[in-house]
């Protein structure tokens, strides 16, 4: 989440000028980063709600990704793009993580990022002067979707929806697999569960974008 690093003492202690400089630098760097898809930023916008920041799984039913990395890249990329379910598993991996803008290069970049050890904590941003990662993650969907304009807004709704879903939909009962119902039924269920869970309208809309994108 964006606010966490902003609160960290390391950043707070930096002078305003240094922060401004770092963001200035980020603006220069980002377009270049967008061409070679940024695996970390993509992971943190599209996959983190289910897989968690370290890949160990944020919600019951999602396995530790470390246990899957013995498969070859091509197979993993294929499973990310087309979705995947181990026979009998309680929840499926949604195609493209539910993000329609995700390309094969993006998937490859994320696998690369996972192999490089997503679980290791990111280097403190003060040390290398690089911008804190979450702002980059928030900005990333725009350049990633640059090939097809208009996808950006949808994919941020999607990422917010995935997070709201992960945060709220297993509070009372076991998490339902996004794949288990077609769009029209999710519409009905989310309207019903919005009342049960006490969600606001925007959260419910985002969750619906996520569920429709994931089934």
């Amino acid at each position: 989440m964006t606010r966490v690093p902003l609160r960290s003492p390391a950043i707070a202690s930096q002078s305003l000028r240094a922060v401004a400089a770092a963001f200035g630098l980020a603006l220069v760097i980002l377009p270049a980063g967008a061409i070679a898809a940024d695996g970390k930023a993509l992971y943190e916008s599209t996959c983190v709600a289910c897989h968690g920041p370290t890949g160990k799984g944020a919600i019951p039913g999602v396995p530790d990704l470390a246990t899957r990395l013995d498969k070859p890249d091509a197979e993993l990329v294929n499973n990310v793009l087309n979705g995947f379910q181990t026979p009998g598993s309680p929840m499926a991996m949604p195609a493209k993580g539910g993000n329609p803008a995700l390309t094969a290069e993006d998937a490859q970049a994320i696998i690369g990022y996972l192999r490089s050890g997503a679980g290791t904590p990111p280097p403190p941003s003060a040390a290398n002067g690089a911008p804190a990662s979450p702002p980059a993650a928030v900005l990333a969907p725009a350049p990633a979707g640059a090939t097809s304009a208009g996808v950006a807004a949808d994919s941020t709704a999607f990422a917010r929806g995935a997070q709201a879903w992960a945060d709220n939909c297993a509070r009372c009962h076991a998490m339902r697999d996004p794949k288990s119902l077609p769009d029209e039924q999710w519409q009905v269920v989310v309207t019903h569960m919005r009342l049960r869970a006490g969600l606001d309208g925007a959260q419910a809309d985002d969750i619906l974008v996520f569920l429709k994108g994931s089934n």
Partner: peptide
Amino acid sequence: LRGGRALADGHQLNYA
């Protein structure tokens, strides 16, 4: 009457 509100800082409120 039921509903909810997402507040700043990730807080959430719900009521019935």
